[in-house]
Design a protein around this nucleic acid. Structure first.
Length: 232
DNA sequence: CGTTAGCCCTGCTGGC
DNA sequence: TGCCAGCAGGGCTAAC
């Protein structure tokens, strides 16, 4: 990270779950927060009380700083050169909120695949940016059982799923994300999407649609919540 | 190629 | 009240 000294950040963007800081040199400083990573705009020097689980400090001219904290140390920060970047981002599928992600694309991705639909939604090489929370909530919204083989979902159901993914993400973004555990934005603020979960982390509670009981299972090793009555 | 299981890591929770 | 096994999960690798 010493190579960053003296450089100007020219733009900020995002690809899937990766945050990108584009530098004047053409290099990209990339962050992935995973579950417990936190990026915070703060003052420099960083207060002693903020040193726990601190992984990286970027000090800016003018006395402010960007800190990267990560309790579970699953998050990543790394630099991509101009040469490396295109190949790196090619590994990711389209963004659900861009026009390249449409009914036709989703139908093509689902076709002939045997994996449970939930596992497919979490595959970043097919669709970028869907995590465990959003897969559960989108499948509920679309009325699709998380264990259904992807290949048997087509037509009207596939269209419903595409729409559900877009709407779930839009709403979550509008509410500032989900702060179940540690997520905070760069100003330290919590999101509020977690207060609107229909099924995720609501095992044993009533389904808001039918009043039935929300069930929890494991799909692809991930905790998965759904309503057995509403999701077929 | 498509799919699945296991690993990483640490703080919190649930059951006794 | 205290203890500790197990859970949480995104992405990578190995294996089939």
């Amino acid at each position: 990270m010493r190579r960053l000294k003296g450089q100007t950040i020219e733009s900020l963007c995002r690809r899937g779950k990766y945050l990108l800081l584009e530098l004047e040199s053409g290099q990209t400083l990339v962050f992935h927060l995973r579950m417990t990573g936190r990026l915070t705009r703060t003052e420099s020097p960083v207060p002693k009380s903020d040193k726990r689980h601190l992984r990286l400090i970027l000090e800016f001219a003018g006395g402010s700083a960007l800190t990267f904290h990560d309790t579970r140390r699953f998050g990543k920060a790394f630099i991509l050169s101009t040469d490396e970047a295109p190949a790196y981002w090619k590994k990711l599928g389209p963004e659900p909120l861009e026009s390249s992600f449409n009914n036709k694309y989703l139908a093509g991705v689902l076709d002939k695949r045997t994996r449970p639909i939930k596992s497919l939604l979490l595959d970043q090489s097919l669709i970028a940016g869907i995590g465990n929370i959003y897969a559960d909530e989108a499948l509920y919204r679309a009325g699709i059982h998380p264990e259904r083989p992807a290949g048997e979902i087509g037509g009207e159901e596939a269209r419903r799923l595409a729409k559900a993914l877009k709407e779930t993400l839009k709403k979550a973004i509008k509410l500032g994300g989900s702060s179940i555990d540690s997520y905070r934005d760069a100003r330290g603020r919590s999101g509020s999407f977690q207060h609107t979960f229909r099924v995720h982390r609501r095992e044993g509670e009533p389904c808001p649609g039918c009043g039935g009981i929300v069930k929890k299972i494991k799909v692809g090793g991930r905790g998965t919540y759904f309503c057995p009555a509403c999701q077929r």
